[in-house]
């Protein structure tokens, strides 16, 4: 079984992101970039399926600028077999990214596609579902458990009310939630080895997909700050404030 794992280079989750002074976008100058945490979970799940003998090959792919090679190498160090960069200078929206991925799927014919449920930059939560839709594949989003049997994926999903289990026929798209697994750290030998693995570069322009952005960002600003609060000395004082000042308790 062949698994395709689309991943994204994003600002590291520990970075406090701020707008540029001209408010045209967020300020990404000199900030630490990482593999999107949900994508790491996707790679880890694929690697575990390979370790169990279920998967035979894991391909990671990203649609992005040349510097995304760093994140692809990181995924190779975690255990992916080879990588594809679909290179573009523009910052693509989820729909355009999904269209590029459709091309990759047609070239590679994976049995399973695992991606993160959302990227922590745009917080869109769209790419996996869009990819499934464009391919007319079934999907299992927000996965916290994944099992492969009888050419189906049996997936437990984290939903607002609790958990849901569904079965989808392969080929299918699965998107990861936080509880699916805890990604490993790459070992030094694996990091060294990853440098020798194949990383193919394709160009978005060669794909004949419409990558024009449909959304124009007019401004990016900080959210309204909350008014500074007060510290209370005791539970008694807290209860008094909540009753008589904030009036949220009766």
């Amino acid at each position: 079984m062949k698994i395709l794992v689309p991943v994204k280079r994003v600002v590291d989750y520990n970075v406090k992101v701020r707008p540029l002074p001209d408010q045209s976008d967020v300020d990404l100058n000199n900030v630490k970039m990482s593999v999107n945490p949900f994508c790491e979970i996707a790679v880890e799940e694929a690697v575990r399926l390979k370790e169990k003998g279920v998967a035979t090959e894991i391909i990671v792919v990203t649609v992005g600028q040349s510097d995304s090679q760093e994140q692809l190498r990181a995924c190779l160090a975690l255990g992916a077999d080879r990588a594809i960069l679909v290179e573009t200078q523009s910052l693509l929206e989820p729909l355009a990214i999904a269209k590029c991925l459709v091309n990759v799927v047609h070239n590679e014919n994976p049995d399973l596609i695992i991606l993160g449920k959302q990227a922590i930059d745009g917080d869109n939560n769209q790419t996996g579902q869009m990819l499934a839709s464009l391919l007319d594949y079934p999907q299992a989003t927000f996965a916290s458990e994944l099992e492969i049997a009888d050419n189906q994926a049996i997936v437990t999903r984290e939903i607002d009310g609790g958990l849901q289990t569904i079965k989808v026929n392969l080929p299918a798209v699965v998107t990861t939630d936080l509880r699916l697994n805890e990604p490993r750290y790459a070992s030094l030998p694996n990091i060294m080895q990853a440098k020798k693995k194949t990383l193919d570069i394709m160009n978005v322009e060669d794909m004949s997909v419409d990558i024009n952005n449909r959304l124009q960002t007019l401004s990016v600003v900080l959210p309204e700050e909350r008014q500074a609060g007060v510290m209370v000395e005791s539970v008694t004082e807290l209860v008094d404030k909540l009753k008589n000042e904030a009036k949220v308790l009766s």
């Binding site: 707008p19 929206e93 930059d121 917080d123 939560n125 769209q126 007019l218 401004s219």
Partner: peptide, 28 residues
């Protein structure tokens, strides 16, 4: 292109939405 998680409607085609875990608000 879907517009996810809007928090305000500015006009018939313009919306506000949080990005980067709500660190910033984008008008799109």
């Amino acid at each position: 292109q879907q517009i996810s998680d809007i928090i305000s409607i500015e006009s018939e085609d313009t919306f506000k939405r949080p990005i980067y875990a709500g660190s910033c608000i984008a008008t799109v």
